[in-house]
Design a protein around this nucleic acid. Structure first.
Length: 753
DNA sequence: TGCGTGCGGCTTTTT
DNA sequence: GCCGCACGCA
């Protein structure tokens, strides 16, 4: 029991809980992970459960790894035998064992969101529907919704028979399902749905898991959807009637409603699980009193909540500073300047600061501001690594080799690199496949019978033999070596190597990164076949990537920030229409409540200092939009705020310019009416700056091949110089940062050697 | 079959 | 303001 001595009373009450269902409402920063890990350690330490009798479900793989690590610090047992993972990865594990019981091959593959979209587009085209009226994104979300409510295509069509549009959507849905099945593929939703189906239909499978998992723990319960709820319920059911489900969550941090998460799961837990106990954790160990009061003040405006109030023993701390800015460029500049100031005056490390925003699109302006100020940064999210073309192509080869029924992957790579297999040839193959009920790959074997031109027929023959050779290699090589073989044998490497542009090179870099990820995977896991690797990468989210610990600030969406904490946090874009985001003039109370929770999540990321900005004018879709400040700002209690009024701020801005640039002053002191003065008089080549301070590199002082030193990114080599009007852009290959474009004259670089 | 151009939609958030 | 796609030309 001494294990639990380091916990506070409430935490201990939760962690010491033994049998029966329990809901732990854990506010932000109240030690949720501590409770989870201590409970698991305690169950094992007191011999209540063996490691393999524990099932712990988290929201991200990163959280799962963290949990494993922290448990192994608490006890001597190996955590390898415990099932700790996301719903998706746990379900994959269950399905790999027994999915053949419900009519799939065990070597199924997983289609990610973009595969899904491609497949839906194929269906729309195949049904001769108007691509413009039948938007693949819209249909994707309809299908996903219906699937998660367990409505199959037939049911969907009969329920919506009155609508021509929905009848057609029903057809797309049906065809989509057929194609998935034919390819022996599952989409993200299927992973959960099929696992549930398997458990429901096959009694012995169900029994074996129900017996095995004596204790089930679910993190982030507020973000579970209908299917996940049912999975928890079915796995938690025990023979003796007891239901050892331990769920942890915070109704105030439910921010995935748009993805089907159902906040009523957590709100109704006590009704759903008979005899459930509830423990509330409200003591916060993260933030100052001011920050917590602000968070409490905001969230109390929501009606759909259980109600709680975070408190702390910490001091009041600094007031929250809110900045009204002219536009997003000023916003970015201000954030950058404040960061410098925090770093210099308060010795806050850059790695202890984060900039949060509502949409990924906002990152660009911020990024530019940081680059100009020479502040090192990293962006979480945005274009995801495994969604890059070159990576998807290579993965398509792997998927096809692993599962030849995968038509989507075949389609993707049959002519990449170019093999003289054109649209017409592919069309004939597709027809052959459809007519004979075989896969595209099998149809390739019939190529000689299909009346193709001799050259097309030969091209296909070559392609097939190449693939067959790779299938043999797959059997004898370790994964990383095999991927290397695919990369070379398919001609993909040569194709990329020939492309000597910046993009081409960065693609090669990405593949290198992919190869080393494969190597790493192989060394790290015992189960490291191609199958394991494919499952691993298709379930990886961007937040899961373990970041190297360099001293740089982090930029990300509020969603991506959930579960993280920083000394100093900047929340940007607090404008009506952006945060809360409003979609197509529709706003329901539920949506606003979810936005408010999102803002609550953002506020509670900050430990010591919180800055909030909003702009009056923001560029969106390429045009200017006037913005009024977010309603949420009025919900922050007045006494928590130090508002920077615009006029006072104009002076402050000059002051900051002074600090940042060493004495530079605009000739026009009253610059409020000219919002972009920063850019006009300064960044576009006013010479004042260069006179005042050590000049930064100009275009004539540098050439391709020169070695340079960048303030933030370290050493690099100039690859190319590009003229863009009056400015010159240097393309620089940095040793650790990859290839970057910098503006000469502004970028903090110096020539070395 | 490959490449260039012009148009339209997109921006919520992600396992 | 950018990306992806469709279409048209060589």
């Amino acid at each position: 029991m001494e294990l639990l001595n380091t916990l506070n009373e409430k935490q201990r009450e939760a962690a010491a809980h033994d049998k029966g269902p329990i809901l732990v409402i854990a506010g932000a920063g109240t030690g949720k992970t501590r409770v989870l890990t201590h409970r698991i350690a305690n169950l094992i330490g007191t011999n209540k459960a063996m490691p393999w009798e524990i099932l712990a479900i988290t929201f991200t793989n990163k959280a799962a790894n963290e949990m494993k690590e922290r448990i192994s610090q608490l006890i001597d047992y190996s955590v390898d035998k415990m099932w700790i993972g996301t719903f998706h990865s746990i379900c994959v594990r269950i399905l790999r064992r027994d999915i053949d019981r419900i009519g799939y091959d065990r070597n199924f593959i997983i289609y990610d969101t973009s595969d899904q979209k491609t497949l839906i587009k194929d269906c729309i085209k195949e049904l001769d529907l108007d691509v413009k009226k039948y938007n693949s994104n819209v249909i994707k979300s309809i299908i996903s919704n219906e699937k998660n409510n367990r409505v199959n295509p037939d049911k969907f069509t009969s329920e919506h028979y009155g609508s021509f549009y929905h009848r057609n959507v029903g057809d797309v849905y049906a065809l989509y399902e057929k194609k998935l099945k034919l390819a022996n593929a599952l989409d993200f939703d299927d992973l959960l749905i099929k696992a549930l189906e398997l458990l429901e239909r096959e009694q012995d499978v169900r029994d074996s898991y129900q017996e095995r998992f004596k204790y089930i723990l679910v993190d982030e319960y507020q973000d579970t959807n209908n299917i996940q709820y049912n999975l928890v319920k079915i796995l938690g059911k025990k023979k003796g009637g007891e239901n050892n489900v331990f769920v942890v969550g915070d109704d105030d941090q439910s921010i995935y409603g748009w993805r089907g998460a159902d906040i009523t799961n957590i709100l109704n837990f006590e009704n759903d699980f008979e005899g459930a106990k509830t423990v509330k954790l409200e003591k916060n160990y993260r933030s100052t009193n001011v920050i917590l009061s602000a968070a409490n003040g905001v969230i109390k405006n929501n009606s759909q909540r259980k109600g709680k109030n975070l408190y702390t023993d910490f001091q009041d701390g600094n007031l929250i500073r809110i900045f009204e800015m002219d536009n997003e460029k000023d916003e970015a500049f201000t954030v950058a300047s404040l960061m410098k100031k925090e770093n210099r005056d308060n010795h806050v490390e850059y790695s202890d600061m984060a900039v949060l925003y509502r949409t990924n699109a906002q990152s660009r302006a911020l990024e530019e501001g940081l680059i100009r100020e020479g502040i090192p940064y990293k962006i979480v999210g945005g274009q995801k690594f495994y969604e890059r073309k070159e990576i998807k192509d290579l993965v398509a080869y792997l998927m096809l080799i692993y599962n030849q029924k995968d038509g989507l992957s075949l389609d993707r790579i049959i002519n990449v690199p170019k093999r003289k297999i054109g649209a017409r040839t592919i069309e004939i193959l597709t027809e052959c496949a459809n007519e004979n009920g075989i896969s595209m790959f099998e149809a390739c074997f019939e190529a000689s019978e299909l009346g193709l031109t001799p050259s097309a027929s030969k091209s296909i023959g070559d392609f097939v033999s190449m693939m067959e050779m790779l299938m043999i290699k797959k059997e004898v090589m370790p994964v990383s070596e095999f991927i290397q073989a695919v990369w070379e044998d398919t001609g993909y490497k040569n194709m990329l190597m020939e492309d000597d542009t910046i993009e081409g090179r960065s693609r090669v870099d990405n593949v290198d990164e992919f190869l080393s990820a494969a190597k790493d995977f192989e060394e790290r896991y015992e189960e490291n076949t191609l199958e394991d690797f494919l499952a691993h990468i298709s379930l990886l989210a961007d937040v899961d990537k373990t970041e190297e610990k360099v001293d740089c600030v982090t930029l990300m969406t509020v969603h991506a920030a959930k579960g993280l904490e920083y000394d100093t946090v900047f929340i940007t874009g607090l404008e009506e229409g952006i945060f809360p985001i409003i979609h197509q003039d529709e706003e329901s109370d539920d949506d606003i409540e979810e936005e408010r929770r999102l803002f609550y999540v953002a506020i509670t990321r900050a430990k010591r200092m919180l800055y909030i900005t909003h702009a009056n004018d923001r560029m969106r879709f390429g045009n200017h939009e006037m913005k009024s400040k977010s309603r949420f700002l009025k919900e922050i209690p007045k006494e928590c705020i130090e508002e920077e009024n615009p006029l006072a701020f104009a002076a402050k801005k000059l002051e900051m310019m002074d600090e940042a640039f060493g004495g530079f002053r605009s000739s026009d002191g009253s610059t409020r009416k000219k919002p972009s003065f920063v850019k006009d008089t300064f960044f576009k080549g006013s010479s004042t700056y260069e006179e005042d301070k050590k000049p930064r590199l100009k275009s004539d002082s540098i050439e391709a091949g020169d070695r340079i030193m960048h303030k933030a990114w370290g050493e690099g080599t100039v690859v190319q110089l590009k003229k863009d009007g009056s400015t010159t852009i240097a393309v620089i290959a940095f040793e650790n940062k990859g290839i970057k474009n910098v503006i000469l004259g502004y970028a903090p670089i110096e020539k070395i050697q």
